[in-house]
Design a protein around this nucleic acid. Structure first.
Lengths: 124, 124
DNA sequence: AGTACTGTATTAGTTCACTAATACACTATA
DNA sequence: TATAGTGTATTAGTGAACTAATACAGTACT
């Protein structure tokens, strides 16, 4: 996993897992890879990974069973709320930054569309 | 200035100044507030501010004259390139995250439009 | 019962970021 | 010349993040 060296690693791991849960790659009720396995997968220390999981436990997106594993919550509403929160956070943050760069609303939409078209052309 | 506690302060200060330069609030050729004044303005240590300015010097967006001050570059092309870089970085990052949240291109555009409309309604 | 897995916690060391304090070199002004 | 401003650098202390190592508690399987 490539880490942005400006943001704490545990925080990036947490977000990485949140995105998988929201995207359904990690489905409700499913067991997460073990702490030790995740540490190997993302190339970080076990304690760093545990830190990320602890925050996810606090936020009730995963549940822990000592000796058995960590499980994605089966509470679909929690996952939906998490998705909504992440989406609006990202849109808000992005809009503020682009607005601060003096882009008009129309320019912002246009730039995204250009980016999408460009991305689509490359991948075809 | 409100700092995000997940990102180094010097880096946020650098971006804050970059956005002002790109937006024209700090015009080409203009003298920046002194290091000591900026430290007071953003509520950070002089050395932290100096760290931000040093990176901006390295990236040739400002020029320094010891005893006189730091000046925004008069090279309009550099500023334009900086703007393009910041815009595409932000769009790319945002798109990747929203895409990772399973939003389609259409949904992304729709969400931004909703956000803009909502913001506009509130501010009217 | 023993082994191998699981999650959780603690200690200690290193690095980075931030701060405070101090000092030096340059410029402008009185 | 002295003063007040400017930028730049260094030292030292603190805290957060990360790592390594180690250990403990729970579960599952042989």
């Amino acid at each position: 996993m490539n880490f942005d060296d400006k943001i704490p690693i545990y925080y990036q791991i947490k977000n990485h897992l949140y995105y998988q849960i929201v995207a359904g790659t990690l489905a409700p009720g499913v067991k997460l890879p073990s702490v030790r396995q995740l540490a190997v997968d993302v190339t970080a220390n076990v304690n760093t990974v545990q830190h990320a999981l602890t925050e996810m436990l606090d936020e009730k997106i995963i549940e822990s069973k000592r000796g058995k594993g960590n499980f994605v919550t089966e509470d679909i509403d929690s996952i939906k709320q998490l998705k909504d929160k992440l989406v609006i956070e990202q849109i808000s943050l992005s809009y503020k930054k682009l607005h601060a760069l003096s882009l008009t609303d129309t320019e912002i939409i246009t730039e995204f569309k250009k980016y999408m078209k460009n991305r689509s052309d490359i991948n075809d």
